[in-house]
Design a protein around this nucleic acid. Sequence first.
DNA 1: GTAAAGTATGAACTATAGTTTAATGTCAAC
DNA 2: GTTGACATTAAACTATAGTTCATACTTTAC
Lengths: 131, 131
Amino acid sequence: MYIKDLAQAVDIPISTIRYYERKKLLTEEHFSRLDNNYRIYNEQAVERLQLIRAGQQAGITLSEMQAYIDDWEDNNLTDDDKRMFFNAKLAEIEDRLLGLQQVREYVLSKLEHLDNEDTQLAFNHPCEDIK
Amino acid sequence: MYIKDLAQAVDIPISTIRYYERKKLLTEEHFSRLDNNYRIYNEQAVERLQLIRAGQQAGITLSEMQAYIDDWEDNNLTDDDKRMFFNAKLAEIEDRLLGLQQVREYVLSKLEHLDNEDTQLAFNHPCEDIK
DNA sequence: GTAAAGTATGAACTATAGTTTAATGTCAAC
DNA sequence: GTTGACATTAAACTATAGTTCATACTTTAC
């Protein structure tokens, strides 16, 4: 899979794919080189890029992801280290999920308020300020 | 309320508060000046900063917020405009929630993998659900 | 009345996440 | 054998969201 094909497969610009490689988020495991020096990517590359995008959606930065991947792939860690690491990450994720859900409620309430406004406008009620 | 008090009230650095002012996210409506040129903030400032933080949680950039607040306060937006804006934001939030849940599943699967390893190694109890 | 703490300003600096550019190499088609 | 589409690199550039710095003025504490 040439870089162009990978870019199309995951809908990420070629320049960004090379940037991720510079940032060590893509390594030798994700591609090899042809004689002409062109990169040839494998399926792991697709998965890694999808994981990066999922992580970004979740508000995890590239360096956080990098650190996480490093820690995972470093076998200096005992199972307990790993468990602690993942439990910590999980707690962070749960926190973020909660926050995000709150913001969703907030946005939803604004939408409802707008809809109520419509019904109320007919009766000329004064509109209170939104939050 | 001096800038220090505001900073404490909303847990945002003083430098960031001044930065938001530079970015026009805080205006004359949110503070006045003493004779010595010190800013004195009002409750609206607290609310505005909380709104900014909530917006950021929802993935709204400062310039988006700036444009949105301007339009909102100039009454340039119809209710349908507002509805469309919030619906778009809602879709983005749902996206982020999905991404976050994917990452949680991924982390959970890693933890389960570790625990299964343990079960085989040490006859440990199966792992109860975390969180 | 001097030092420490707080406030002000503008400008430079930082980090993150890329994008763009320039210069060059490769390959397939005509 | 030249054109065009693709590939390579390093380096410069951009935008966002701040932070830090240098310098200076004000207020509070001792």
